[in-house]
Amino acid sequence: MNTAILIATVLICLLSLAALLIWLERRLLGIWQDRLGPNRVGFLGLGQVVADMIKIFTKEDWIPPFADKGIFILAPTIVVIAMLMAFAVVPFAPDTSISNLNIGLLFFLAMSSLAAYSVMLGGYASNNKYALLGSLRAAAQTVSYEVFMGLSLMGVVLLTGSFNMSDIVLAQKEHGWFVFSQFVGFIVFLVAGIAESHRLPFDLPEAEHEIVAGFHTEYSGMKFGLFFIGEYLGVALISAVITTLFFGGWLGPEFMPPLFWFCLKTFIFICFFVLLRAAVPRPRYDQLMMFGWKVMLPISLLNLLITAALTLARAS
């Protein structure tokens, strides 16, 4: 019963968070670009979220006649479902996670890879050359960056000796935040995380100046909204996982509850994602691939090697 309540709470929180993130992103972008951002609707413009939701729900939901209808409808749901599923293993506070899986980390990796299908199917089903180009880009990008995304986390796993997310958090109570001991792993995971969630500067699958809007060119209404929410959930998920794996999760001084620390850290990373969008330009596609295969993969392998060696040395 408790789990059911928790699931419902998390679900509601996450979905409203995703919507809120839209507002947050626009406000933050405004601040960093010396503008105001949406501030007209309601207090601080928060009503904008509601307005946007009303708008997106009432918009004409158009399925192009040339699209593969079934897959076209299915595609945007996959990303949302996968992202929400991944949150199941995130420990928000001590003993507060939907499912305290022993292979939590692997589950997270699996779920975040599933999201790639959403993009690929969406692009394919649209039957539009821009959408197809976007989904091809997404596929290649996901495949490339997923490799060292997993590898970068292995350092943490080595140090902890567990795939369980709660264990990893608890381990940081002893070892200190893994961001210090696994700094390289953190950087690699951060980059891979951005790429996985198709956020700037790695949003080449939907690079609007080249391929209109990439995989979601043909999407409108709530189906587009699902892609949109999926992206923000992705941002939240990656931030939450970074917090959990590298910044000690819910750990923090006693004067505030653990959930607060978790949320604060996650929030800071979300802001960092927005900052990236505000500041960093988009690379060329070949640069993106080259960076992934020629820089990030060797670094993560090296990191794993050294971590393993050190762990072995210490153990012996």
Binding site: G30, I31, W32, D34, R35, L36, L275, A279, V280
Partner: peptide, 16 residues
């Protein structure tokens, strides 16, 4: 450096 510069703009007044 760009990230840092942009972050500094948190404290500049909006031109709007």
């Amino acid at each position: 450096r760009t990230l840092w510069t942009v972050l500094q703009h948190t404290f500049t007044k909006a031109d709007t």
